[in-house]
Every structure is written in C-alpha cells, then in structure tokens.
Write a protein that binds this DNA or RNA. Sequence first.
DNA 1: CCCGCCCGCTTGCAATTGCAAGCAAGCCGC
DNA 2: GCGGCTTGCTTGCAATTGCAAGCGGGCGGG
Lengths: 156, 156
Amino acid sequence: MASLNVGSLGEYIREQRRNAQYSLRQLAEVAGVSNPYLSQIERGLRKPSAEILQQIAKALRISAETLYVQAGILEERDGDAPALRAAILADPLLNERQKQALLAVYEAFLKENRETGESSGAAAATGTVPATPPAGSADADADADADADADTGATG
Amino acid sequence: MASLNVGSLGEYIREQRRNAQYSLRQLAEVAGVSNPYLSQIERGLRKPSAEILQQIAKALRISAETLYVQAGILEERDGDAPALRAAILADPLLNERQKQALLAVYEAFLKENRETGESSGAAAATGTVPATPPAGSADADADADADADADTGATG
DNA sequence: CCCGCCCGCTTGCAATTGCAAGCAAGCCGC
DNA sequence: GCGGCTTGCTTGCAATTGCAAGCGGGCGGG
C-alpha cells in the first residue's frame, strides 16, 4: 500500500476525530484500540487492518467503507454524484419506480445547487455527527493544542 | 474475527477457485501470493489482509467486495437500507436540507414498500465468471485430487 | 526402475501489526 | 512552587501475517 494513501488515511481519521471533538484517547477507548496505536495510525506510521478501521469508523460514527476507501482497500464509488446514483439503483428495498423518483429528486437538487451555487460546503461533508466527548475536559484548550499538533502532523 | 467467518472465507475461495478451474498454485501465481499462504487461507489457518483478498479476488475475476463480505470486513449489501442513508448523508453535492428531504422521500418509499410488501428483489449474485486455466493440465485428475482434499479440509 | 512435472501442504523466519508501560508537556487549583 | 489531570507520543515486545525452501504424493514417459 502506497504510503501516500496511508498518510491521507491518518489525516482523514484525525480530521474526523476533531470534528467529533474527541481527544485521541477518547476515540481510542471508544474504538477499542490502544491510544498509541491510534496515534501512529493518524501519523501514518502504521497501516491498520480492516478490523481496526471498522472499529475506528464505528466509534466515529461514520461508515467503515469511508475509511476503507481512504485506505485504498475499497474502490471509491468514483465521482460523488454517481455514488449516490449507484446507491439508489442498488438499493434492494426500492422498486424501479421509486428509484427513478429518488433519482429525479436528486437531480433536481443538483440542478438547484448548480444554479444557486449553493452546496453544503460544511466540513462535515462525510456526514460526521459531532458527538459529545465522553467526559468533560478543557475543550477549548484541547482544540488549541490539537491545532498546533495538526500543523506538525501535516509535515510528516 | 471469528474463525467461523475465516473458515467460510477459505471455503468460498476454494470453491471459486475450483469453479475457475485453477489449481492452487495457478491461482496463487495469478494472484501474486505464495501458494502455501493461499493453501493456509483456504484451510482457514490464516486470516489474510484486505490487500491479499483484493489480489485473490482480482485473480478470480470476482469483486473484492465479495471476499470482504465473506471475511466479515464489509457489510453485505442486501437488506442494508442504512447504506443508502449513509450515501445520502455523505454526498457533498447536497446541502443539509436536501439531504433530509431525500431521506424523507426514501423513508416514505420504504414505508410504502412495507405496507405493500413490494420491492425489486433483484439479487445481483456474486457473478462468478469461470476463467480458463492459464496452462493446460490434467484437469480431470486434479479435480479428483482436489475433491479428496476438500473433504479433508472441511474437517479442519 | 528412473526422471520430470504437477499437486497441496509443512515449516521456519522476517516483517508487520497492535498493545502495555511509560514519557514529556500543558493546564488548573492549592 | 506543588500535585493531579489531561494530552499526544515513544518504546519494547508478543502475536500475526506472508513468504521461501522444501516435503511427500500422484501421474506419465523413457
């Protein structure tokens, strides 16, 4: 696996963790992995197995597939727009009429966004749900420190 | 990972390999893994990484996702309504309002289907494509031997 | 008999993965 | 100042992963 992918995986996990306002130890605990290992993963020093990615994803409340894609072990649904199209078409719980209807709604929204130039440019593009940290802590201070570390990490 | 899953993974790979009429060594070579390791995988003695599964799947000309599902590192798609939910929430081209709207439509369809008991239950099977073996060999004999081994392997 | 080829599997080992124990630094209250 | 707590990271180690070298067996041809 190219270290480039592993690097982006770690950055991605760190980003999601911060979005969720978890400290490294908090996420490690919730995910059931050791905090040093999670640190190494975030810094791209280790390449975690799919099981570990699954655990991390679950703790971050994102889909495991998202992390698999980042790790390069799953193909991206290439093209964000086609991804949802494919998902709609592949959903076994919908019949053909409903699929087409959903697609039509989706296309209408895309068109609307193109015309208004509006989209959810929120950083939570991956559907991250900011979770409350498990324990109270000096959140403001932790964020400040985390930002400084993030700059350092980007160098790695 | 429960050894049960690993066991079924190995059995599945062996089955697909036989369908493709590959010997263990042939598949190992095409997949780019060592033949002893492939043997161990098939017998459930080792739990391969996603990368190895990817290589094996490619050699067998099946989707990697199929093997991921067998290995338990990917959720099976069928009946997995949350997958489309996740896709909607993950789509970066939609804003929050549109995401919620699409989800509402989706939920309405699911409810409709539950009441009518109707859905397009087209099950896209794993689509195994038997491939021709890379080299000619005593296929009949190899199959006979392989069957005997298969029985032994099932005991393990 | 021999040899060569094929088959699947055994075994020992190096590299990798994931962890436990612990470090250093920052912040806060006394 | 101190101690207690939090933070992210370092380090050594055990277990696991994947491989190379090789085994034993079957088959066919000389």
